[in-house]
């Protein structure tokens, strides 16, 4: 899964979808995930990156990323899978 190409993100945690005009805000971990997604990382790679950086169980991070991905999908921020 990938973030839609035209989604604008900022360091302060703002997300703007120019296609439909929706705006969002994310907390720091959320901001980081979006940033890594933009870099082209997969969710799996993101999980490893977060586990390295943060004091958290891999299983917890995995569950949270899945949940976050669900939210992104719900907000129409992800590319459709082909």
């Amino acid at each position: 899964m990938k973030l839609r190409r035209n989604i604008a993100t900022s360091e302060s945690g703002f997300v703007f979808n120019p296609t439909n005009g929706d705006s969002f805000s994310t907390n720091p971990v959320g901001t980081e995930i979006l940033f890594l997604l933009k870099e082209g990382m997969s969710f799996r790679e993101i999980k490893d990156a977060l586990v390295n950086r943060y004091d958290a169980e891999p299983s917890v991070v995995e569950k949270d990323i899945d949940d976050f991905a669900l939210a992104l999908k719900g907000f129409n921020l992800l590319e459709y899978e082909s």
């Binding site: 997300v15 929706d22 705006s23 969002f24 805000s25 994310t26 907390n27 720091p28 971990v29 959320g30 980081e32 995930i33 977060l50 950086r53 943060y54 004091d55 958290a56 917890v60 991070v61 949270d64 990323i65 949940d67 976050f68 939210a71 992104l72 907000f75």
Partner: peptide, 14 residues
Amino acid sequence: KLKYERPSIKQLNA
């Protein structure tokens, strides 16, 4: 390691 908080995203209320 940094303190972890689960990621969250919130739609800005329009």
